[in-house]
């Protein structure tokens, strides 16, 4: 779970004064949780947050040894716990999504959104799943039905792969006014996205905006 604490990441953090990394990871967590498919992994952000957690952990440890103000130490500890919770929830929700859609993810360009560790996890997970199904069920099925990915040999596509429901509705909030936004290809449905207003929209239509960071899911 350790990574190189680069100076670059530190610079990034300071340049983002105003919006704290906690705010950013919270946003990433909310988006990840509300979006039906897996989003781009926030590598540098996770690294920065980890770095800050480590720093604070050291400070807390030092202060405890020094026997300095108990109140301050406990407050810092709370802050630390909250940040840890956020980070863990973020990573965990991604793993849960990967577990559910592992084959879909590894077959599509969603693969590039994973971190290195997540890729490793996906591969191992797929292997284990395949082996399990193979041994417990598939090996005993008659010829033509023993594929891991297909219903039967007559299926042209892999139709036994769970895919995320992109049609689902999501609640979202625009950070800045996006303006008139076209929701479908035909252009019949146009919605005027005003900053800070809440909308309920099909995820599919605003996918691009979520990925570009123009809109937040709640």
């Amino acid at each position: 779970m350790s990574g190189p604490w680069s100076e670059e990441a530190e610079e990034d953090a300071s340049s983002l004064a105003g919006t704290t990394d906690v705010e950013l990871i919270k946003r990433a967590w909310r988006n990840e949780k509300a979006a039906p498919e897996i989003l781009q992994f926030e590598g540098p952000l996770v690294l920065r947050v980890r770095e800050q957690i480590q720093l604070l952990e050291e400070t807390v440890e030092e202060s405890t040894e020094n026997g300095s103000n108990d109140l301050v130490v406990s407050l810092y500890q709370m802050d630390l716990d909250r940040t840890l919770f956020l980070l863990r929830s973020y990573l965990r929700i991604r793993l849960q999504k990967i577990e559910k859609y592992m084959i879909h993810i590894s077959k599509t360009n969603l693969w590039n959104r994973l971190s290195e560790q997540e890729k490793k996890f996906t591969k191992r997970c797929t292997e284990i799943m395949e082996k399990l199904l193979e041994q417990s069920v598939l090996a005993r099925l008659p010829y033509g039905y023993e594929s891991f990915l297909k219903q039967s040999i007559s299926s042209e596509e892999d139709d036994m792969v769970p895919e995320p429901q992109l049609d689902t509705f999501v609640f979202c909030k625009a950070k800045d006014a996006v303006g008139a936004f076209q929701l479908d290809d035909s252009g019949d449905e146009i919605v005027d996205l005003v900053a800070d207003d809440l909308y309920v929209i099909r995820y599919k239509s605003i996918k691009g905006l979520v990925e570009a960071g123009q809109i937040d899911l709640v």
Partner: peptide, 13 residues
């Protein structure tokens, strides 16, 4: 019916 609905007319902040 539709693809989207405005859930809140006013700012929630």
């Amino acid at each position: 019916r539709t693809h989207a609905v405005k859930a809140l007319q006013k700012k929630v902040t």
